[in-house]
């Protein structure tokens, strides 16, 4: 067994500190060590996007990053985007516009979408489709996922304008 490493993360605003083997994947850290089970495991080979989280402002598939690589980073999972009583506009939109069926891809989808809108608050339909291409959904045919993201973008921009 290899030597354990001392790792510090800030996950959803909370400081976490632990010792882990260098080979521990971030998705296992989240799901098994920290009981954060929103990010799901769909493939473990970085192709499906079910495990997507945001690390220091970038979308990352947490199944293909070692916890050690994330040492010192800020990690946001779906749980950090909004809870049942304070839904983020994207969460609200996915719910209202049926952007989900089985829901297994949903946490990764929304987490990715939140980063997409961060980078590009006014995406075209095509930019959404290509920006989300790394997240597979087997159920919806993507129609309502695209719709949900469009609706959330509109909502968020309107809120921003109102605040200005």
């Amino acid at each position: 067994m290899s030597k354990k490493m001392h790792i510090k993360l800030k996950v959803n605003g909370k400081d976490e500190e632990f010792f882990a083997e260098p080979r521990e994947l971030l998705i296992y850290t989240l799901r098994e060590r920290l009981n954060i089970t929103g990010p799901h495991i769909g493939c473990e080979t970085s192709h499906c996007g079910a495990c997507t989280v945001t690390i220091n402002g970038k979308s990352v598939k947490s199944c293909t990053m070692f916890a050690a690589q994330a040492d010192g980073a800020e990690v946001t999972t779906i749980e950090g985007i909004g809870g049942p009583d304070n839904l983020h506009p994207l969460q609200e939109a996915f719910k209202e516009h049926h952007g989900l069926q089985c829901g297994y891809c949903t946490p990764g989808m929304i987490t990715r979408a939140s980063n997409l809108l961060e980078e590009n608050p006014n995406p075209t339909e095509e930019e959404i489709r290509f920006g989300m291409a790394g997240n597979i959904c087997r159920c919806t045919g993507y129609q309502n996922i695209v719709k949900s993201i469009q609706a959330a973008a509109t909502e968020m921009n309107a809120a921003k304008e109102a605040a200005e």
């Binding site: 954060i36 089970t37 929103g38 990010p39 999972t77 779906i78 749980e79 909004g82 809870g83 049942p84 839904l87 994207l90 969460q91 609200e92 996915f94 719910k95 049926h98 989900l100 069926q101 829901g103 949903t106 946490p107 929304i110």
Partner: peptide
């Protein structure tokens, strides 16, 4: 969907 709120919040 009945569980939509649970899905969108993980």
């Amino acid at each position: 969907h009945d569980a939509a709120k649970l899905h969108v919040t993980g």
